[in-house]
Simulated assay, not measured.
Amino acid sequence: MPPPSAPDCYRVPTTPSSGEFRDRGSKFVAVLRPVRSEAEALAVVEEQRLAHPKCNHHCYAYRIGPGTDRWRANDDGEPSGTAGKPILGQIDKEGLSDLIIVVSRYFGGTKLGTSGLITAYREAARLSLLETVLAERVLTSPILLEFGYALMTPVMGALSQLGLEMADQEFTERARIKLEVRQSEREATVKELKAAIAGVYLAEVHDTFVVEGLTVSLPG
């Protein structure tokens, strides 16, 4: 099993890859694609149907996002539980998300039986996972700053000091800046910002600390 990620990270593949497994004349061709939505995942399935028109089965599994509720495993006509779940099992063994694996089967004339199919789909998926490059995707949360122009210099100085980049900005009657920071660091970052903008020690910033002229919002 891979080492656990931080609470605001999850592991993802960053490159497409493929794998091939053969058993008694049958060939199982697996492709792995990084995806960010169910629509993207299903488009890969259709892509493989077109790429392998002689195959009657294009079985697949995918997971999307950091949670555990956006997934699907499809046997595409193979006996129930012999294809999609073994593919998904390999994805989960590596602790990955934001990907789909499609395995297209070329029938070789000999039936493999339930156990043979499970092994073949599992191995094809495993081989495709060996070839991809993995990374961690960081989950972020926004911080919104609204302030008068008298605070422009201290705000910009604080951003520079803390190494924070603006995700969005609007300068009208008041200045509005949006930041994106790691979820696990958002509360600490707000305190550091207030201290830097106000020019006080971090220990002086408590939960009700207010910088005059500055509004800080934390959208959900």
Rank of each mutant, 00 (worst) to 15 (best):
G113S: 13
G113T: 10
G113R: 14
G113I: 14
T114L: 05
T114R: 09
T114M: 04
T114Q: 10
S115H: 07
S115I: 01
S115E: 09
S115Q: 10
S115L: 02
G116D: 08
G116V: 07
L117W: 06
L117V: 04
L117D: 06
L117E: 11
L117I: 08
L117G: 00
I118G: 03
A120C: 10
A120T: 09
A120G: 05
A120W: 11
A120H: 08
A120D: 10
Y121E: 11
Y121S: 03
R122H: 03
R122K: 14
E123L: 09
E123A: 04
E123K: 04
A124N: 04
A125I: 02
A125Y: 08
A125T: 01
A125G: 01
R126C: 01
R126A: 15
R126D: 08
L127K: 13
L127Q: 15
L127I: 06
S128P: 01
S128A: 15
S128Q: 05
L129T: 00
L129F: 13
L129M: 11
L129C: 05
L129N: 01
L129E: 07
L129K: 03
L129P: 00
L130P: 00
L130T: 12
E131K: 05
E131H: 08
T132C: 15
T132G: 02
T132M: 06
V133F: 11
V133S: 12
V133K: 12
L134V: 04
L134P: 00
L134S: 01
L134Y: 13
L134K: 02
L134H: 02
A135K: 12
A135Y: 13
A135V: 09
E136W: 14
E136F: 14
R137W: 13
R137A: 14
R137V: 04
V138Q: 14
V138T: 09
L139C: 06
L139E: 14
L139M: 15
T140I: 07
T140C: 05
S141E: 14
S141W: 09
P142V: 13
P142Y: 13
P142T: 12
P142I: 14
I143F: 08
I143W: 11
I143G: 00
I143V: 06
L144V: 13
L144H: 11
L145C: 07
L145W: 12
L145N: 03
L145I: 10
L145Y: 10
L145E: 07
L145M: 11
E146C: 06
E146K: 11
E146Y: 01
F147D: 05
F147S: 02
F147Y: 15
F147I: 05
G148A: 11
G148P: 00
Y149C: 04
Y149R: 07
Y149H: 14
Y149K: 01
Y149Q: 09
